[in-house]
Write a protein that binds this DNA or RNA. Structure first.
Lengths: 221, 221
DNA sequence: ATTAGTCTGTACTGTACAGTACAGTTGGTT
DNA sequence: AACCAACTGTACTGTACAGTACAGACTAAT
């Protein structure tokens, strides 16, 4: 028998609600769902418990609102196509790593995994907006490259999975299990180029693959 | 002021303790740490709370013991070297996937990530015994291949990361965020061969890389 | 069969916390 | 100034659960 949630009508109300969301986001991301009490949220944003329960009828609803807010305001994966494919891929790779290995994202990630059983829809939503979307972007790009005969790809899905896996997996594990700082911009950039070059080795035509922009002597593996 | 934990002296005691561990493992893996109550554990294994607190002085200590037990009894990653490198890699890849995508492992994984902040040592221990060990195995194999001139590798670390990333990342994400069944043996086998072949494309010498056992016409990408 | 150590059931304590009740205050609108 | 809705503080209820207390029952070895 919970009090129904109410939409704020005044500007003051909208402000209060936003303050609550912000405080809750900070605490949930820092300490997790179970370890964050409603009282702690109220303490952090000022005001009173009654007000909070005016806008969010349960703790679960509040959590939902917090994650919705974060996920829908995150930078969406995107792929800017430049004239040469190596540059396009490296740019995408770097942009993706910057998002995935940002400190806000590390916290979000672990929170979502931790609460997946309690909030399976949230985990699914996150997956759709993040990893899935990024994957799909790459797949459609691969299909285009394949149909234009620029890469020797049989299975665009799989090639996209390989590219992203090489890019992210190793550091992703560290992010999940260890408490290490995010990689530097420099090392992300290095990794991006190495991954893309190895990818082109595997999927390019031996004769001419992407060679327009790829400096042949610089073969560092 | 908790009662100190006691080592079982009798066979009966050792049996009791083992039953408790088993029941706790089942419940922790199924429902997580916070959602598993001591009472539920006691209900499941019979006996009484007092006995449990005789062997484990707190809930945290019990959890620790449970995970220690599971992690140290898990199948360790291993790499059997056959005469040809393609076979060696495919065998390793398949064995690794079978472990990582088993249903027991999915549960363990999510539990460890979820509780990483409460039990950072556990997460680190898991990482060392699982992903780290597997990675190190591949690295030392790569070093050997490099020094024998069988692969064109500059950075053995990185090449190992790429191999494992291609192999695991995509399904790993699904395992973390979605509630999908584990992949079939058949699809794991397919993936293992595709990954290894693409890996050899990227790191083998164009002229002769691993061709002894690699059927050239069967180039499915 | 006695004894010592171990196990069991039940009932209890204390605490943390989600959610509610309510009386009083604030601040914007007319 | 007067009104009303939205806010605030505080105190409360109920519940879930970690950990304790204790009296009695079981088991095994002599």
């Amino acid at each position: 028998m919970t009090t129904p949630a109410v939409k704020p009508k005044s500007a003051r109300g909208r402000n209060r609600r936003a303050k609550i969301l912000k405080a809750a986001a900070d605490l949930f991301l820092d300490h997790g769902y179970g370890e964050t009490s409603i009282d702690a949220i109220v303490d952090r944003c000022g005001g009173s418990k009654a007000t909070l329960y005016n806008y969010f009828s349960t703790k679960e609803e509040l959590f939902h609102a917090v994650i919705d807010d974060i996920v829908s305001n995150r930078q969406k994966p995107d792929l800017d196509i430049s004239e040469d494919l190596r540059t396009t891929l490296i740019t995408f790779a770097l942009q993706r790593m910057k998002v995935v290995f940002s400190s806000q994202h590390r916290q979000l990630l672990r929170l979502i995994v931790a609460e997946r059983d309690r909030f399976p829809q949230i985990a699914a939503m996150y997956y759709e907006h993040g990893p899935k979307r990024s994957h799909d972007l790459v797949v459609s790009y691969m299909e285009r490259l394949k149909s234009r005969g620029l890469l020797e790809i049989d299975n665009p899905e799989e090639s996209a999975e390989f590219l992203i896996g090489m890019l992210l997996h190793h550091w992703y594990l560290a992010q999940l299990y260890l408490q290490t700082p995010p990689p530097s911009e420099r090392s992300m950039r290095d990794r991006a180029t190495h991954v893309v070059d190895r990818f082109l080795d595997a999927f390019g035509f031996p004769e001419d693959a992407g060679l327009k922009a790829r400096p042949a002597p610089k073969k560092t593996r």
